[in-house]
Amino acid sequence: MKTHNLSKIYNGKIKAVDDLNIEIGDGEIYGLLGPNGAGKTTTINMLTTRISCTKGTAIVAGYNIRKDSLMVRKTIGVVPQDLTADEDLTGRENLVMVSQFYDVPKEEYEERIPKLLELVDMTEAANRYVRTYSGGMRKRLELIVGLVHNPKILFLDEPTLGLDIQTRTQMWDYVRQIQKEMDVTIILTSHYLEEIDALADRVSIIDHGKVLVTGSPAELKSSLNGDIVTITFKEKEEAEKMKTIPGVIDTSDSGINTVRIKVANSDDSLPDIINFISSNKLSTMKLTVQKPTLDEVFLEYTGKDIRKEDPEDARKMMMNMRRLRR
């Protein structure tokens, strides 16, 4: 899959996506990260032909999204963050229904559905009504609903939103297994950076509709060139004083009375930092040391914390969680 100057402009002036150029290899798990309003949802909507692009184009599963939107839809699978399965049908009936929507021949879906159910450990629950499923079971069903027509590309939009960490980790195993056994390209968006870190072969961080950086999670973390020491003081002036410490790569504010210090190696630099605090008689409230993570990469390139979601995101998450618990 490849985009070429893909752009979306609303009302003639608001650039939601601005000349986006990314290339995703066959069989790759590709993560899209960005703060709220970065353009990743708009990008996905264009790639899945839910909305038209203003300029540029993309080739998805071998088809041009401008000229061959119907073929694009036939060759991709989409798993939205909202629950879409009919609760008054069984899991198997939902899979059959969606297969028929895609005009999958009966002999094909009768052979494929049992394999998909087995792939996510849902065989025993297949003939139960969806309304009796747990949250994790519903998410697993949604996952294979997107695969009944054997797509070449699978879009996963927040596939584990609202799930507890144990269930989320199990879902990661299912995603890996699906990619391995079906050789499908997976494009993943998630607010859980550990999810992107665990699953994605490569990641693009997007902000203001542009790609800021692309690479494997390991490459992005190593690009920070250092560890992060975060210190909270009793007074704001004390945090400002830490910005004068010699021998560090960089210092920056990280909240009220808190300073974020980048060092080449925290094991070597921490004694000097502690000596500086002691010699200047600063009142330390909290000190943490963090090796490079995708959280730090995200903060470095966007200046924002992905975990600080806006009220609308929080509302959607709570609604999903309530539905999952029914």
Rank of each mutant, 00 (worst) to 15 (best):
K8H: 09
K8W: 01
I9T: 08
Y10I: 08
N11I: 06
G12A: 10
G12E: 11
G12D: 07
K13R: 11
I14G: 09
V17K: 02
D18N: 10
N21E: 02
N21I: 02
I22P: 01
E23H: 02
I24A: 11
G25E: 15
I29E: 02
I29Y: 02
Y30M: 00
G31R: 04
T41K: 01
T41V: 07
T43S: 09
K55Y: 10
V60Q: 03
A61Y: 06
A61P: 01
G62C: 04
Y63T: 04
Y63C: 08
N64M: 04
L70V: 14
R73N: 11
V79Q: 12
P80K: 04
Q81L: 06
L83S: 05
L83M: 08
L83V: 09
L83I: 15
A85M: 09
R92S: 14
E93P: 06
N94V: 04
F101T: 07
V104H: 09
K106S: 09
E111F: 12
E111I: 12
I113T: 07
I113F: 09
L119D: 01
M122Y: 06
A125Q: 12
A125M: 06
R128K: 15
Y129D: 03
Y133V: 11
Y133S: 10
M137Q: 08
R138N: 11
K139E: 05
K139C: 10
I144W: 02
V148L: 07
V148G: 08
D164S: 04
I165Y: 13
M171G: 09
V175C: 05
E181M: 07
E181P: 00
D183K: 14
V184S: 02
T185R: 12
T189C: 11
D197G: 03
A198P: 05
R202P: 00
V203F: 07
D207R: 00
H208M: 05
G209V: 03
V213L: 08
P217Y: 12
E219Q: 15
E219R: 05
S223M: 08
S223E: 12
V229F: 06
I231R: 05
F233A: 07
A239K: 04
P246W: 02
V248A: 02
V248E: 00
I249M: 06
I249N: 11
D250A: 14
S252N: 12
D253G: 10
T258C: 03
I261D: 07
V263W: 01
A264E: 15
L270V: 05
P271C: 08
D272S: 13
N275E: 15
F276V: 12
S278C: 13
S279R: 13
D295G: 14
E296Q: 13
E300K: 15
Y301D: 08
Y301C: 07
K304G: 06
K308F: 10
P311C: 01
E312K: 15
R315Q: 15
R315M: 14
M317E: 15
M318P: 06
N320F: 12
M321W: 11
R322D: 13
R323M: 13
